[in-house]
Amino acid sequence: MEPPIYDGRIHPNEYIKKMRTYCNFRQITNEQEILKFAIMNIDSTIDIPKNITSFDALINALKGHISFNIFKNSCKRKLELLKYVTEREGGDTANFVTEFRKLCHDAEITNLVEQKKCLFNAVPYNFLKNNFTNEQRNVTSMNDLVKVFEESVLEDSRIIRNGSIVALRHIVTGKYLSSCNKNYPGDRSFSSFFAILFGSSNMVYCDDFGPNALWSMNSSTESINSAIDYGEPIQLRHEIFSKFFYTDMGKKSPTSNHFRVCCYEKERKDHWIIGNYHHQSDDGNVKSQDIITLQWKQSEVNKNILLRSHEFKFKIKNEDNEDYQEVVAHDQRTGGNDQWCIELIGYRDT
């Protein structure tokens, strides 16, 4: 373990702390010996008075030297340039908070209002700024400030964005919206009008969570990674088969005879609208773990058509003979079977 050296690139208090740690490691316990050793390890370019007899006097002498002003002002400039980057974009919240607190300490910014200004300036996202602005008013310490910041970061990390990979869990049955490379019972790849226009289809059902339950959520009105809001038109595309999730109103579901839902190869102009099941007037950001409804919007169809699943099952005869939990679109009254929990799985690389 090498002894610390003071050359103006560390806060004097931190230098004394490191020196005490070193002396303790070397079993040097006499205060005057530690003080003498601390004075000896100050760089020769930093002049201090000869008659220093205490650590307080040493710290004051180091703070009175021009090198400390340069160090402190440098830390202030670094604070002004410090910017928060989310983990989603390759950042590290823990490293950011550590650097922020260290720079505030080294720049001797102890006023809470000034600390708030510095942290607010480092936050680049409107959502974080708005949320952080509201919550930071009640903080009384640096620890409170960091806690509020972390809570804002957590809320931001829950936002579903354009291009997000999501899973949709049916609330009543606990199963996930899924698709596989199979056709519905008695169906053929190009047996419907939609199949002719939009390519071969895959059936949709609910199952346990797995690769077949992964969907990308996309909005044509937003740039990539922009937040998706309630009431916004979106497309769902299956991650494995790269097919788009639609309602085929010309076909009946295999068990309950509602409208059939399928995945087709080609994109079409029709879309889904996300609604908040518990707050229908909500127009804010869609967030992971929200309970939502999915409303189908199709040109020239003026009906309230919702995505639903239930306990009804169907089989594909002469294949695997497994039971598949039916998923449908319907125009009946909204009910508990129309509830879905949206779960954020990840983000696209581009």
Rank of each mutant, 00 (worst) to 15 (best):
R237L: 05
R237H: 04
H238T: 05
E239R: 11
E239S: 13
E239M: 14
E239C: 15
I240H: 05
I240D: 05
F241A: 04
S242Q: 15
K243F: 09
K243Y: 11
F244T: 00
F244E: 00
F244R: 00
F244G: 00
F245T: 02
Y246C: 02
Y246F: 12
T247N: 06
D248K: 04
D248F: 04
D248L: 02
G250Q: 09
G250S: 11
G250T: 09
G250M: 04
K251I: 11
S253M: 05
P254Q: 07
P254V: 07
P254F: 04
P254I: 07
T255R: 14
S256Y: 00
N257Y: 11
N257I: 01
H258Y: 13
H258R: 07
V261K: 00
C262G: 09
C263E: 11
C263W: 03
C263G: 03
E265K: 15
K266T: 11
K266F: 13
K266A: 10
E267H: 13
R268C: 14
R268L: 12
K269I: 12
H271K: 08
H271M: 07
H271D: 06
H271P: 04
H271V: 12
H271C: 14
W272S: 01
W272T: 03
W272M: 05
G275H: 08
G275V: 00
G275A: 06
N276I: 02
Y277L: 06
Y277D: 08
Y277V: 09
H278P: 00
H279I: 11
H279W: 08
Q280P: 06
Q280S: 14
S281T: 13
D282P: 00
D283Y: 08
D283F: 08
D283S: 13
D283P: 00
D283T: 15
G284K: 07
G284L: 05
G284P: 03
G284N: 09
V286H: 03
V286D: 03
V286F: 05
K287P: 03
K287H: 05
K287D: 02
K287S: 15
S288K: 02
Q289Y: 14
Q289G: 01
Q289I: 07
D290C: 02
D290F: 08
I291R: 02
I291H: 02
I291T: 13
I291W: 03
I292P: 00
I292M: 01
L294P: 06
L294E: 08
Q295V: 11
Q295T: 14
Q295P: 04
W296M: 05
W296H: 10
Q298H: 11
Q298N: 06
E300Q: 12
V301F: 10
N302K: 14
N302Q: 13
N302H: 14
N302D: 15
N302A: 12
K303D: 11
K303E: 15
K303Y: 09
K303H: 09
N304K: 12
N304L: 11
I305P: 06
L306I: 04
L306A: 04
L307T: 05
L307S: 07
R308D: 10
R308H: 11
R308E: 14
R308S: 15
S309F: 08
S309K: 06
